[in-house]
Design a protein around this nucleic acid. Structure first.
Length: 269
DNA sequence: CACGAGACCTGTTCGC
DNA sequence: TGCGAACAGGTCTCGT
């Protein structure tokens, strides 16, 4: 489901929620493979009586600081976080339920079961391979240009490679490339410095717009944000490009749908 | 190294 | 109406 703006939105709402300062009373796991580590027995015992002290984000990971350890959740395609009263009936796809003191519970709901949860003492070991945070002040057009020079890969799959840059997925990669007027198949090392500057701008603009709109709500998953109403190209096949009116085209790149304007985003050579 | 295909999963939408 | 195919915000692993 979510990319950086969606995870950021969820993170912000959790941070302002009553889970902060609450102790975990019980943990119920309903799909074993949801847990990346440790074992279900270890997990359900070790997490008990730890208090949630803060919530953060790195790339697409939600990071819950607990009293003694750190809980990380990756929502993958269909994961959602529900904060609900303890008495509520369970929704069909609840995979992990943490009951907190005060009659509330935090549920990880994940229809497709791709999501993963970690309980570790050092979160670095889970997120250490992630690339830079795109909105971090240290991530400059110069840094992006230098990294692009090092790869001959197609720009779209490269932007979605979390070790290259953390947080972009299919929506924001398509949107950023359109803003930058770059074809999704452009070889990274053929991108000029001024194109890299445009791409840097496009990445920031797309992510910041996404965050401003509290993320996108697509299909039946996640309601709340409305960035889907502002897509320039993503899932707009056949509709007019907002810049030039040409019909948006969809191709497959790296097993994923890629949407672009064939007039604004041309491939050189 | 870079790419494609296949896995992992369930649910919705599309085309005949 | 029904049924299969295609598609979906992600990532991992394996083969070429």
């Amino acid at each position: 489901m979510p990319e950086l703006p969606e995870v950021e939105t969820i993170c912000n709402s959790l941070r302002a929620s009553p889970i902060i300062g609450r102790k975990i009373i019980t943990a119920e796991l309903h799909w074993a493979r949801t847990l990346a580590e440790p074992s279900p027995q270890e997990f359900t015992t070790r997490i008990l009586s730890q208090t949630i002290t803060e919530v953060g984000r790195r790339g697409k990971f939600l990071i819950f600081q607990l009293t003694r350890e750190v809980l990380l959740i990756h929502l993958r395609m269909s994961g959602e976080i529900f904060l609900e009263p303890d008495g509520n009936p369970w929704l069909p796809h609840h995979r992990l339920i943490l009951r907190l003191e005060g009659g509330i519970r935090l549920a990880f709901n994940d229809a497709r079961k791709f999501g993963r949860v970690w309980l570790v003492s050092d979160p670095q070991k889970v997120v250490q391979d992630l690339g830079p945070e795109p909105l971090d002040p240290n991530f400059t057009p110069q840094v992006l240009y230098q990294k692009l020079q090092l790869s001959r890969r197609q720009i779209k799959p490269l932007l979605m490679d979390q070790t290259f840059l953390a947080g972009l997925g299919n929506i924001y990669a398509d949107e950023a490339l359109h803003l930058a007027r770059l074809h999704p198949l452009t070889p990274a090392n053929q991108i000029t410095f001024s194109q890299a500057e445009r791409l840097w701008q496009g990445i920031r603009q797309a992510l910041e717009a996404g965050i401003r709109h509290q993320g996108a709500s697509i299909d039946w998953v996640y309601r709340g944000g409305d960035f889907q109403n502002y897509f320039r190209v993503y899932r707009r096949t056949g509709e007019p490009c907002p810049e030039c009116g040409t019909a948006i085209v969809r191709i497959t790149v790296g097993q994923r749908g890629a949407h672009f304007c064939p007039t604004c985003q041309t491939l050189q050579g």
